[in-house]
């Protein structure tokens, strides 16, 4: 692929205009899933085609792009998407969260608070929070339009009845501005509080399912729960072995054949900048 053969950021201008229209509608109705005519992208469905299309539609030549997968800049799919935009849009890229204007993510929200100058683009596999309770799209759209959400709490009730806890640990459903119930994409529930009142614009793209939705800056987002079983943003009860962070989301890494484990920040940029400041954990000799 050479740069001249394709339009800026791969998609043709007509397609971008169509996506931008869907984005505007999504921003106007926070949490509502807007259908859009998703295109086949040169990467498979499930690899982030929704997020890529949203990024392609909003990128400008002055943007600085960061791409993370599982919180890390160096995971293979993040590397692949970043190099796609480097090649097709020629935009600057960065791994520093604070320097990025557009951040495309799969499964995480960065630890450092975002600003009004930033946009966070999520890759979404299944945008419909009611999907596993009701498989029919025609029915779930009706449930949203009529605000019939009782079933969602039935699911949480059943969890507690069976396990004593709400047994949803990621893609934890939220209510947006007390209207639409939304799937926040498969981020761990630890990240859910960051969805609410976030200064950045948050855009969600589901390519295969042909849906776009959005949370404008400072939108109120509440994780569903019961009064006597309140939502908890849980994580592994450890500190990062590399940077000593106590309140970041941690990956568990198996370090030897005996199954010994250590816990390190999943947000690689966060961890590295802490270490650059001289902060250390017990394994960072």
């Amino acid at each position: 692929m050479n740069n001249e053969a394709y339009n800026f950021a791969y998609l043709d201008e007509q397609t971008k205009r169509m996506i931008r229209r869907a984005l505007l509608k999504a921003v106007a109705i926070p949490g509502y899933q807007v259908p859009f005519a998703s295109r086949e992208m040169p990467m498979p469905y499930g690899w982030g085609t929704g997020g890529v299309q949203v990024s392609a539609a909003i990128l400008t030549p002055d943007d600085r792009l960061k791409v993370i997968d599982q919180g890390a800049d160096d995971t293979t799919n993040a590397v692949s998407i970043r190099s796609f935009f480097k090649r097709t849009a020629g935009v600057q890229t960065t791994t520093a969260t604070s320097e990025a204007t557009v951040i495309q993510t799969r499964h995480r929200i960065p630890e450092v608070p975002l600003t009004e100058k930033q946009t966070l683009v999520y890759q979404v596999p299944i945008p419909e929070p009611l999907r596993f309770l009701e498989p029919r799209e025609s029915e779930t759209r009706k449930m949203h339009s009529l605000e019939e959400y009782g079933l969602m709490h039935v699911k949480l009730y059943e969890d507690i009845a069976r396990h004593g806890h709400i047994a949803t640990s990621y893609a934890y459903p939220v209510s947006v501005e007390e209207r639409y119930i939304m799937d926040p994409s498969p981020i761990p529930k630890f990240d859910n509080p960051k969805l609410s009142q976030n200064a950045a614009l948050q855009l969600f793209g589901a390519g295969r399912e042909q849906r776009i939705y959005a949370l404008p800056p400072y939108t109120k987002v509440v994780s569903l729960d019961f009064d006597d079983h309140p939502f908890e943003a849980s994580k592994a009860n450890h500190v990062c072995a590399l940077c000593g962070a106590e309140h970041s989301y941690l990956d568990e890494v198996i370090v030897d054949d005996e199954g010994n484990r250590m816990f390190v920040c999943s947000d690689t940029d966060y961890c590295e900048s802490r270490r650059a400041q001289g902060l250390t954990g017990k394994s960072a000799a």
Partner: peptide, 23 residues
């Protein structure tokens, strides 16, 4: 859905949010 969930659904649909009370 369990018997309890079946009885609880209508309560939750109209806003009941206390698991203990629902149960």
């Amino acid at each position: 859905v369990s018997a309890g969930g079946n009885v609880g659904e209508r309560m939750m649909a109209v806003g009941a949010r206390h698991y203990g009370d629902i149960r």
